[in-house]
Amino acid sequence: MSDNAPVSVVVVDDHPAILAGIEAWYAASQRPITVVAAGGAVQEAWTPPGSTADVVILDLQLGEGGPAFGSLRRLVDAERQVVVYSMRDDEQTALNCLDLGAATFLTKSEGREHLVEATLAAADDRPYMPPALAGALGTNTRADRPQLSAREEDVLIEWFQSESKELVAQRLGISVRTVNSYLDRVRIKYANVGRDARTKASLVARAIQDGLVDVADL
């Protein structure tokens, strides 16, 4: 997908106010993003016109049930790009979503700053790392976690703390570009471990193609 092609999105969220907010943010985007379907059930993503959308925005907490990890897994297995957009602000949920193959994990408090960029990145198979997710990865103690360098961990944690790449760059004495490359590299490392998924593979492939990571790094 070229870097300026329009992006189509299906939003699965049962809260009308959230839907309205998302549509407003997308409308302000430089690159056109169209919400082709929206609703409170995952069915929207499986039936036309939602079934052909480039990106699925999925609220994990639908109705009264627990987190919709099963829906996420099925969407990922159908090679859909899913941005998980959740009220839940805990690292275990974030780590589970990444492992299942979600493109990224956003908390709703981060939506205004990060949803548009996350959607575009998902459409392009590019990595995207919002602060809440960075905090989860920086404190991950699971046995199957990828090996991170000390600097990578610092960047993750400080990005989580400050929510400002400029401040992180200033504190560490590096450029914002470098901060981004650290974050991307961590995201790719995570895509390269755990459960196999087509979306993860394409994320890694694109990253190698773009020169974000070396094959040797992985």
């Binding site: 905090g135 920086g138 404190t139 103690t141 961990e153 944690i157 989580f160 703390q161 400050s162 929510e163 400002s164 401040l167």
Partner: peptide, 17 residues
């Protein structure tokens, strides 16, 4: 303001911005 607590196996970091 944003206040965070980060617990890693080696350290605890409390930050306010």
């Amino acid at each position: 303001a944003r206040v965070t607590v980060v617990w890693t196996p080696r350290a605890v970091r409390v930050s306010a911005i």
